[in-house]
Design a protein around this nucleic acid. Structure first.
Lengths: 184, 184
DNA sequence: ACCTGAACACCGTTCAAGT
DNA sequence: ACCTGAACACCGTTCAAGT
């Protein structure tokens, strides 16, 4: 049977989880699928769009809460925490998602839900967009660092010990409180 | 005369500014210096530490304000804005600084000043560190996006028009206000 | 329609050997 | 001390040709 674009993305996620972003090359991906690297270009325009598809796959696992109107601040906190949890489940995902989003090739806009909640809470479109982007940047930056530290620990360059999420929670709470104060 | 590590870093910054991070390869850097790529490894351990040196060079341009005790929130706003200004002066610098800081090879810790101000304002060491990191992540994330959009516009993939700093200012103000509310 | 073979134009890094 | 030459083991991408 012929290869599917879905199988290509599946295998890419698998390589990412097992070996990290540095080992996610078109050649290795081809090998893992029993196919020459050039064959992948039948299913995917280029590596950038492959990475975008991987990012979309990962971001689709983030749940959209419904508790918007009830308390937008609580919803933002839950959303940020959920996004972090999903990212931590895939090696190097924060960096990958950041670059993929920057490339403009992702189909999903992860800030869509929080933006809507903020608009429903009375913020204008522009400020809502800015605030949602800020939360996204904070989460991606923090998780990116968490994942880099994880790698260092595994290489023995850093002492072990679970990192915990207090730092993330504190930072996210600060930002969300500041955003909440802008609501009418 | 023989090459200097300083000249290597200088030329690297020049290539970064003129051609972007993708064109900053050891081979191109060697060519620009009239030297084979392998020769660079006499002055620099590897590419990662070269990038760290470039990041240090850029970060050294950020001014450390003195107005800490007077008003820590105002100091954080000024610092964030100053960091953004410095980053916007060097192409692709936000992404480069983010990866360089993540590598742990940078000499300078850019959060040192803001962390100290927050401690002087009464925050404990841990929270001060978390808050300063949060501001850094927000700035790097935002400027990274600004610089990517700039590239897209230059390639004609996005309509022109100056972007302005309102989005950045709003996001930074939200975070800093949230941090200020944690002060005793 | 889907894949191979083979090439093109690159990478970072190492290291004997030159000066 | 500092650099060249030349190699090693990789990249992403293209594209005629096969099936």
């Amino acid at each position: 049977m012929a290869l599917t674009r879905e199988q290509v993305v599946d295998q890419a996620v698998e390589i990412l989880d097992s070996y990290g972003m540095a080992d996610l090359s078109m050649r290795r991906l081809g090998d893992a699928l029993g196919v020459k690297a050039g064959a992948l270009y039948w299913h995917v325009a280029n590596k950038q769009s492959l990475l975008a598809a991987v990012a979309d796959r990962i971001l689709s696992q983030v749940v959209g809460q419904q508790m918007a109107i009830a308390d937008p601040a609580a919803a933002l906190l839950l959303w940020g925490g959920g996004l972090r949890r999903v990212l931590l489940a895939h090696r190097d995902s924060a960096e990958l998602v950041a670059t993929a989003l920057a490339s403009g090739l992702c189909e999903k806009d992860p800030t869509e839900d929080p933006r809507r909640w903020l608009v429903e809470a009375g913020l204008d479109q522009q400020r809502a967009g800015w605030a949602a982007q800020a939360v996204l940047h904070l989460v991606l930056g923090h998780v990116s660092e968490e994942q880099n530290i994880l790698v260092m620990k595994q290489l023995g360059l850093l002492p072990g010990g679970a990192s915990g999420s207090e730092g993330f929670d504190f930072a996210l709470r600060c930002l969300v409180e500041g955003i909440a104060r802008q609501l009418p």
